[in-house]
Design a protein around this nucleic acid. Structure first.
Lengths: 213, 213
DNA sequence: TAGATTGTTAATCGATTAACAATC
DNA sequence: TAGATTGTTAATCGATTAACAATC
């Protein structure tokens, strides 16, 4: 019955962005925000914003706007970022460090409980409060800690076999930074492939377009 | 006249993905690929692929498929990744290191010619073959080297003022990793804001959805 | 009351899918 | 020739925009 059950995928894709702005407003103590103001921030239109927000309940008040903290709360709920899933990270290189130190520490949705690498020089050292373990501990660790999610920061060539191993150890979701599209053959697996350089190519495209205008 | 002039934005967004697959096929020595095969890789449909590829010229041959290297070439051309823009990076923390070492070194579209930080302990040390310079050198460096693009890997709070300075020194495009949406007030500026954790939230959403089905 | 702003409907626009003749 | 696969048109679907009555 709840409207909230069929939110279109384009709205879902915009939710993290709404969430960021609402969090910022909330932290500044702003209690209400209008569709027009949100639109300005989102580089969208007031109409679009109202259409979006309307599909998960009525949080607005005519003449006043939307209640920031209620809206923030319902978005957290829809995205599921109130949950806490145990996650591990494999590959303690540059990106691995960045993720462990700068992304995960915000402590939303995932708790980083283990870091693995195969380099003997790295094993034993500390990253963001965790000791780097040997990859050969992967299987037993995943089984005993019921790890749901693996963050893959290993080189291209290593991804497939590691993902296989992890799948067999019960891991069913992957956040993959390896520059290689992981395409698991099982359909009970969730994969988010991240390609940072895609956005660099978009930047390049826009630069070229500007220059040729 | 050229079809190529009005490629829709949704096609543009898919180009980096096509590009990746074509590059892989090319490196494996595959000369032709069908829309069906590309669709399988893109998790799309053959119809979609043909529609997409058709909007920038006729590279297919009935009964045979598309010429991989020609297609790759035309995509490189459209995205403008054959150009080489001088870029600098500010903030030699974890993400800065990751970008400098793992993303930029592929040597496409941008050449990293300078790295800056304000931490005296970092200044002078080497990252990916470049010596970290003091941020107070930023302005003079940008002016003398005609820097077009800045990669911002600094904390939230530092972004606005640094972007201002850079703008005044002639920088007109920004690849921003600071977890803060940079919204320059000038309209001759290109900004790509990267929010890595958005994809983490999408992962979270999909996990929650799976669990509740 | 007057001004602001929502929720919702209808109209428009654009993107995806289906179908098939053309051709390698 | 038969099989494969394109290019392109038309049909469908979905997303965005515009408009306005309802209401704080």
């Amino acid at each position: 019955m709840a409207k909230r059950d069929n939110i279109s995928s384009s709205v879902i894709r915009r939710l993290p962005r709404y969430y960021r702005f609402l969090r910022e407003l909330d932290s500044r103590g702003v209690t209400h925000v209008s569709s027009g103001e949100l639109a300005r921030r989102m580089r969208s239109t007031a109409s679009q914003v109202r259409q979006d927000l309307n599909c998960f309940g009525e949080f607005g008040q005519q003449g006043i706007g939307y209640n920031v903290s209620m809206l923030r709360d319902v978005i957290e709920d829809i995205l599921g970022i109130k949950c806490m899933y145990p996650a591990i990270l494999i590959g303690a290189g540059n990106i691995g460090h960045a993720i462990a130190n700068q992304v995960m520490f915000e402590g939303r949705c995932f708790e980083l409980i283990g870091i693995f690498d195969k380099d003997p020089d790295k094993i034993g050292s500390d990253v963001g409060g965790l000791v780097i373990q040997n990859v050969d501990q992967l299987e037993s660790f995943c089984r005993s800690h019921y790890v749901t999610t693996a963050i893959l920061c290993v080189p291209k060539a290593a991804v497939e076999p590691i993902a296989e191993t992890l799948y067999e150890s019960g891991v069913r979701s992957f956040w993959n930074f390896s520059h290689y599209d992981l395409n698991m053959k099982f359909d009970n697996v969730i994969v988010e492939n991240v390609h940072i350089s895609d956005s660099l190519m978009q930047l390049c495209f826009r630069l070229k377009k500007t220059n040729s205008d």
